[in-house]
Nucleic acid binder design. Sequence first.
DNA 1: ACAGTTTCCCGTAAATGC
DNA 2: TGCATTTACGGGAAACTG
Lengths: 406, 406
Amino acid sequence: WSLLTKLLANALVIEKQPVMTSLPQRPLILKTGVRFTVTVRFLANLPAFQGRIKVKPVFDKDVEEANTVTGFRQFNLDKTDSKVLDVNTPDEGLVAEFDQMSPKVKKGRPKGYEYNLRVTEELHIIKFVTEFQYAGLECNIEASSLPLVVICSTNQVPSAWASVMWSNLLSTCKPRKLLFFVDPPPLTWQQLSQVLSWQFLSVGQRGLDENQLSMLRDKFVDDPDGLIHWSNFSKNESAWIWIDGILDLIKRHLVDLWRDGSIMGFVSRERTWALLQEKETGTFLLRFSESNKDGAITISWVENSNGETHVHAVEPYTKQNLSAISLPDSITYYRIGTQGNTTWNPLLYLYPDIPKDTAFGRYYNTSETLSSKKPTNGYVRLTLIPFSDAPTLPPSPPGEMEMMEI
Amino acid sequence: WSLLTKLLANALVIEKQPVMTSLPQRPLILKTGVRFTVTVRFLANLPAFQGRIKVKPVFDKDVEEANTVTGFRQFNLDKTDSKVLDVNTPDEGLVAEFDQMSPKVKKGRPKGYEYNLRVTEELHIIKFVTEFQYAGLECNIEASSLPLVVICSTNQVPSAWASVMWSNLLSTCKPRKLLFFVDPPPLTWQQLSQVLSWQFLSVGQRGLDENQLSMLRDKFVDDPDGLIHWSNFSKNESAWIWIDGILDLIKRHLVDLWRDGSIMGFVSRERTWALLQEKETGTFLLRFSESNKDGAITISWVENSNGETHVHAVEPYTKQNLSAISLPDSITYYRIGTQGNTTWNPLLYLYPDIPKDTAFGRYYNTSETLSSKKPTNGYVRLTLIPFSDAPTLPPSPPGEMEMMEI
DNA sequence: ACAGTTTCCCGTAAATGC
DNA sequence: TGCATTTACGGGAAACTG
């Protein structure tokens, strides 16, 4: 019997960690007033347990230590205390899905030792508590969620996700300390690059290659030992915030191109220059702007004329720009020219030598705004053409350029 | 003394009708969960009253008749019942501003005689109630707001505003009936055109002229007597909804041009054709799309070539389009051309004969997206050029056209 | 099935707190 | 004063509900 109780002690597990249904890519971030879902499973699926086990979620149970001592915010689970579910689902096994809970701040933040943590560095947990009798035995079974972060505005998502990633990578030790961020250990580049690549995989269905990672390494590692410190990673204008803007840009506008591998993305200006310089006129590549912190992408191309080699780049496209015109459309319609004269499209080959239509053809004219293919019943159809004044003189022999007059 | 009581009975007035601060152009529309403001003034500003008068707002007081009988929704004033203000403000007079109230539905809509009114046809009122003694007299003074409409989503604003306009125009009779929309009287075109013009005046700082109104008359009046009936005005795809989309378009993107009178706007296709036909090649005018119910504007221009006259119109610009490129920029950058050949801008004179730069010059290059004038530090600046394939052959003698090659 | 109505929640802006 | 955090609420879409 005592063996049984021991077994049962670990019988309750969390099958799906707390996650906002509206933010499935980023579990363990909860927003006040926004519902989230947790699924709990009881492993010992004996008929005798059917309908006899009640599970109750509790926010930060037994951690008054962390809350009151450090002055963490405290929360209730709104719309939940009443809703204690029976653990039995028709499909298979003893499962309960809690899906109407939302965190709600208890007003009056307790004062205590302040560690100067930001709210996105406060780790919280949700425990699921069970009490039932079996064969005369009192069983108190608990399961605890992974440490999670509670925010109150979506502008906190990037920092919150940084915390979740960091703490999940490093707190493999059993008693996960909710004060983890009082003194968070550093990460090796090996660990961080892994996680970053996963982010791109999950958002854009393609991870980061060696070249991209090596460029990123320089952005993240500032320590001779090759370690990344939380204080740098999480600070206001950190490389992570920059990366997160790019992830968002990809998610909204560039999934196709990123998945196809058409976006080199992480290349320094210098390396861009070096790569393009030895290529044919009209070779271009796509790289993320390093200065724009909201995520932006630019097209760099090479041009050889009169024995000189120039590498140019267009003003980076932001999310706003890309909702007006898609990147493939931009590439196919792009024109440069001199005032009142011949214009041409300087973009011919995606680096190293892929004809642009091969790489982007299938995505042309799918913009949502103007230049879509919908019927216009009597109206003259409009296309938005990105245009620049030619940064240099037109190539002497037009060559394969499609010349055209505007 | 009884004279005094009579005087005092009307001493409480509503100085500013209920209005959401976020929607000042549309008073008397309240949204559940959104705060609104009401200002109340006590006219008899005697020193003896200072600080002794308490005013309390009550939703739908004494109108159980309307609520329970017809099954109107019932509301409380959230965050207010506790907050009964004293009527005394330093500035001048006895004034109280209630600004933290928000309507909140009482759940369980009472069943009763259903008149099949929509929620935006339910009229409600807020009463401000005072009880105080003066010189031994019990004074019960009340002031009542104009009838208002409560919505729960911004997608109900257009219909709600239709109700507010209609009921304020017609219920000049004293006991304003909250069941007004059970059998709302019709409006004369005279009355409606007045109100419509006011809408444009308040949103775009310019009313409607005779020509515009005469075009609108045909859209609204479908009755031989020249009356407009509520059932037509308020139905789902009514002319009002169309107009409201245009008001929104003006508010967001076209205030300048509308104020300047550069937008003819309400002209039928036929009349556009007639007007332009006898004008010089390159004359254009701006008119609102009659088919797009979200508000859209198109440019129509005339072209005489080879003895034939053509009037063309570009695909209408929607709100989305106009956030990518402003209308003035569109006009100055617009190009039409034949595949791989010369292009030109067919827009020269705003009807009747104003050179386009005179009308729009001061608004060029103020788009928020691309083609702005901000510095680009090293990047090649981008401009979005709206382009169309030429609907007809290029004009034989280029004339004053600015020719240019793309 | 469906239309009117409400809820949900992101994203931005503004307000608040410290 | 500036930064961190929270609130506000439009807008679009999903969910609800008769």
